[in-house]
Design a protein around this nucleic acid. Sequence first.
DNA 1: TTGAATGCAAAGGATTTGCAGAGGC
DNA 2: GCCTCTGCAAATCCTTTGCATTCAA
Lengths: 168, 168
Amino acid sequence: MSQQQKSFERLPVASSPEQRFDEYLQSRGMRNTEQRRILLEYVFAEHEHFDADQLIERLPTKGEEGYVSRPTVYRTLAEFVDAGLLKKFELDGRSVYEHDYGYPEHDHLYCEQCENLIEFRSHELTKLLETVASEHRFRRSGHKLIVKGICESCQKSRRRTRRRVDLI
Amino acid sequence: MSQQQKSFERLPVASSPEQRFDEYLQSRGMRNTEQRRILLEYVFAEHEHFDADQLIERLPTKGEEGYVSRPTVYRTLAEFVDAGLLKKFELDGRSVYEHDYGYPEHDHLYCEQCENLIEFRSHELTKLLETVASEHRFRRSGHKLIVKGICESCQKSRRRTRRRVDLI
DNA sequence: TTGAATGCAAAGGATTTGCAGAGGC
DNA sequence: GCCTCTGCAAATCCTTTGCATTCAA
């Protein structure tokens, strides 16, 4: 599943994901295990959105060198989120992860045809949400926004079997 | 679970949810069953966000007059969404429903402490998303936005057991 | 009458958990 | 050596499905 997305510049960050995760582990008395190192490597090998299954597909299978069990994958992804390395959101009922550490804030366009996520950034959106929150005396900690529709290339390509689309 | 939300005026609509659903059923050769009538009544009895379980809790239980089975509840909620009566979105991995027909478009603030949803409307947001979409030549069909944080009343009340909160 | 809808039971998919053994520190 | 972490298996949660029966039109 290829990703159609702009390449974003990295933010200047003090340290690598590895370093940051080490600090996280240290500060909590957690251990730097083989499995955590493997997962960190695979997760940061490419800048893509992925779910647990997609990650597991890329990992060595049982019996091979570097195998990590499914429960450990789930547990470790949660740790990465907790450590601020990954961001997690829901899409069609499953959990999707993306890089957080070192990448600027952004939101997504989601093509309901090809199911690709397209990143975009909008400073105006941030300002707008700040305004809305303050009007409600709401202390904002973050947001999740997905704009659904059909991407440019799917509009161009011939309309295939029309998929049933949510009425919104 | 009480809802803290502004009362929104209803949009001027041509017909009641019942009438609209009848038309929907007619147009598809579907039948107006006892169960569908019961569910429509319960769903539109109050303007609240709810999930399948919360709805089922309010319904008569097995053996009582007016009981509707769980599979039928799920099937019928999907029909309501399809008919444009309800809108569906995901929150913490489960499906949440809210009135759509007769209510203006809006988005939500979600309090991570009391777990209430607070509605807000922003025309500027709509305009902004139109702009973003057109910049990407994206044909927008809708969006899902949830702003997370702490609501006014939870900020005032004494901080209880600090819940673990997503880093965003 | 006749096909659509219901309820039951059971399956499904994603994610989580209890626990005994393995392994960082 | 202690205590965390892992893998296994099984459980959990939410939702969907197959099928025989019921029922609206």
